[in-house]
Amino acid sequence: NKFNKEMRNAYWEILLLPNLNEQQKRAFIRSLYDDPSQSANLLAEAKKLNDAQA
């Protein structure tokens, strides 16, 4: 399933972002589970926040 693969990839990438705190990571991951079809958008948002907090 395409969404499962995308979601899994986004999950691990979000977990490994160094500048997000645990609460932020949990919020993004919760959103991933709520709507896996938004994986790419959520990952992009997480990366943007990660860069902003660098």
Rank of each mutant, 00 (worst) to 15 (best):
L20T: 00
N1Q: 05
A46I: 02
R30V: 14
P36L: 03
A52D: 15
I29V: 11
N41I: 07
K47T: 05
A46T: 02
L16D: 10
N41S: 11
L43R: 12
S39L: 13
L20G: 00
E13F: 09
N4Q: 04
L17P: 00
R8M: 14
D34H: 05
L15D: 01
I29A: 04
K5R: 02
N1A: 02
D35L: 04
E13N: 13
N21E: 14
N41F: 07
M7L: 14
E45I: 07
M7E: 15
D34N: 07
Y33A: 03
F3I: 12
R8S: 08
Y33T: 04
S39Q: 04
N1P: 03
A40I: 06
K2V: 06
R30H: 09
E13G: 09
S39A: 04
F3G: 05
N4H: 10
L32N: 01
A10Q: 02
K48W: 15
R30A: 13
A54D: 13
F3M: 04
A52P: 06
K25A: 03
D51V: 11
N21R: 08
S31I: 09
K5Q: 14
K47V: 12
L43H: 05
A46S: 08
I14L: 07
Y11L: 08
Y33S: 03
L20Y: 00
Q53G: 12
L17K: 03
K47M: 04
E13S: 10
L16H: 13
R8P: 01
N19I: 04
A40K: 14
F28G: 00
L49A: 15
A40G: 08
A46F: 01
S37A: 11
N41P: 03
L32F: 03
E6I: 04
M7K: 01
L49Y: 11
A10R: 03
N9H: 09
R26K: 07
E6Q: 04
E13V: 15
A44P: 01
A10D: 02
D34T: 06
A46K: 00
L17G: 00
K48S: 11
I14S: 00
P18G: 10
L20H: 00
M7F: 15
N41K: 13
R8K: 13
D34F: 13
N4L: 07
L49D: 05
Y11F: 09
F28V: 03
W12T: 13
L20R: 00
N1K: 04
A54W: 11
L15P: 01
A40M: 11
A40N: 09
N4Y: 06
N50T: 01
A10P: 01
P18M: 08
N4R: 02
I29R: 03
Q38N: 08
A10H: 04
L20K: 00
M7A: 13
